[in-house]
Design a binder for these strands. Sequence first.
DNA 1: AGCGCCACATGACATTTGTCACCTGCCAGA
DNA 2: TCTGGCAGGTGACAAATGTCATGTGGCGCT
Lengths: 200, 200
Amino acid sequence: MIRVVLAEDQHMLRGALATLLSLEDDIEIVAEAADGKQALSALREHQPDILVTDIEMPHLSGIDLAETVRRESMPTRVLIVTTFSRPGYLQRALHAGVHGYVLKDSSSDELATAVRRVNAGERYVPAGLAELTWGTPDPLSDRERQVLRLAESGLTNKQIASELSLSVGTVRNYITEAMQKLNAGNRIEAFRMARDLGWL
Amino acid sequence: MIRVVLAEDQHMLRGALATLLSLEDDIEIVAEAADGKQALSALREHQPDILVTDIEMPHLSGIDLAETVRRESMPTRVLIVTTFSRPGYLQRALHAGVHGYVLKDSSSDELATAVRRVNAGERYVPAGLAELTWGTPDPLSDRERQVLRLAESGLTNKQIASELSLSVGTVRNYITEAMQKLNAGNRIEAFRMARDLGWL
DNA sequence: AGCGCCACATGACATTTGTCACCTGCCAGA
DNA sequence: TCTGGCAGGTGACAAATGTCATGTGGCGCT
């Protein structure tokens, strides 16, 4: 029996996946979690074989969970289930020690398959996405990323500067650099592109 | 037997919901659709009792579908299932003649309940959301909405102006008006707020 | 017919944003 | 030790963005 903890913040999808996975003869859902913190408690308590988790969740992301699992040498393997086929996400996920990666846009059969593969010690990654990923390494520096995130939330250069204790000129510089790297015409295009590629 | 067409672009959720709804004794899924166009064909072919549909889908949105259903006087009632609890969405949905509205963040039991209620001729709307909705009527004019959408996609005022055959000054003015109505400090805050409230 | 209201429109002006050239200091690797 | 790269910074200039006063025409109300 493969013992699974399921973490997904969307109630309806979580319930549906739990039901479907439970229908499989060799899979057992030992706990469900609606956010990262609950997931972490469940991991500590149940020490499952597999954690099936979304990336974007309150409190702790699926990637944060994967890092914790590795840092604390838990016996659990992590399988990410996510909406987005953003190259940067997969890259960060693999870097965090994730064992499998499934898109919500695939079938629930494929999820069950992935669970079994990962449980058997294999890696599971969508064919097309893997290639995409290595084609475009993230060119942004930490500062550029930081500044773009704040710009995305609607702050002005002045506000960003005071937030990060930098001069306005420096902030402008980072934005300009990011725009050049991303080949964007203004800050809006820049953070949208970075976001879409999974770099923020 | 309640005959249902299910339209949802996320494969995994669609499959899961189809399975779960089929488990109910009085509900039958007669067709599934992955986008608005497929949904429309399915509606024409099967003339179901209920259309369960997402809002954000390729080709035709769930709201477009609801409008078509009413315009063509189909025998079908429409039940929206969506991620977003944005007041403007519910408002537009009801205006389009939708009979029920369920959030993906509720349980799948609730979905089945909603299907039955709507089939019985009742309306089904989440309690809290209904109040929220009437508290904040959309203050944006058509032009302001149009301009905000284009600004959101990263176009400059000049590009927006040429797109809409206006002068740059006029475009700037619309942005300013929208910013004032939304109490935003710049265009980025403005379109983010409008988007979050479901007004774009 | 006259009034007010509103969406739509414009241009002049001030501020913010983006570009560019150039400077300092730190640190890792050849 | 030299070199290159990166973080941090400045200032001058050009371009885009935001503010404001003002004008037009349509529509409803009295």
